[in-house]
């Protein structure tokens, strides 16, 4: 397989989860796009111009998003973004419309730290040691945050009413 084909296949397979994480980390959609592109370029270079490790990409997205947030007045950004609902984090699945809608709303309503662990675990496919290393927290904390996130989702009124 040619290098360009490998890249295309790799991007097709992973870009949506990378972008999901970038959006979770950034305060605006356009920032998430820039952060993702820069993170991919950086990790590609750091990996000797080959396909980078997924955990490294997630870690770079996180670092770049933090750097970006530090370089801007976060308060101003929040005020600008307040009230302007962006596109949803997930694709609506109309075959299971209600459950999907409630679940995605519940995920979006999770506190940032819980949401981050959940995204990295479910859609990023990272292990708890990887997540712990990336977030610079103990593995036990990563695991407990994940459990707590599931607990919060389970407790959400919509899910208790809509048991499959």
């Amino acid at each position: 397989m040619k290098a360009s084909d490998r890249w295309t296949a790799w991007i097709k397979e992973n870009s949506e989860s990378f972008f999901l994480y970038a959006r979770q980390q950034c305060r605006s959609e356009s920032d998430a796009k820039d952060v993702l592109q820069e993170a991919l370029t950086e990790t590609w270079e750091r990996s000797g111009r080959t396909l980078p490790d997924r955990a490294l990409v997630f870690a770079t997205i996180r670092r770049r998003a933090i750097d970006l947030a530090r370089s801007m007045d976060r308060r101003v950004i929040r005020e600008l973004d307040f009230g302007s609902a962006g596109p949803g984090l997930f694709c609506p699945d109309f075959s299971a419309r209600d459950l999907c809608h409630h679940l995605s709303s519940a995920v979006e309503a999770l506190p940032d730290l819980l949401q981050e662990v959940l995204i990295l675990r479910i859609w990023g496919g990272l292990t708890f040691p990887d997540i712990a290393k990336l977030m610079k927290i103990p593995v036990a904390t990563a695991t407990s945050r994940y459990r707590y996130a599931l607990e919060r989702l389970r407790e959400s009124a919509a899910l208790t009413e809509l048991k499959p």
Binding site: L89, D93, I122
Partner: peptide, 14 residues
């Protein structure tokens, strides 16, 4: 719950 979450697909790239 994890199965349900896996069924949620991240939004496509713009």
């Amino acid at each position: 719950l994890e199965t349900l979450l896996h069924q949620l697909k991240p939004a496509p790239l713009p």
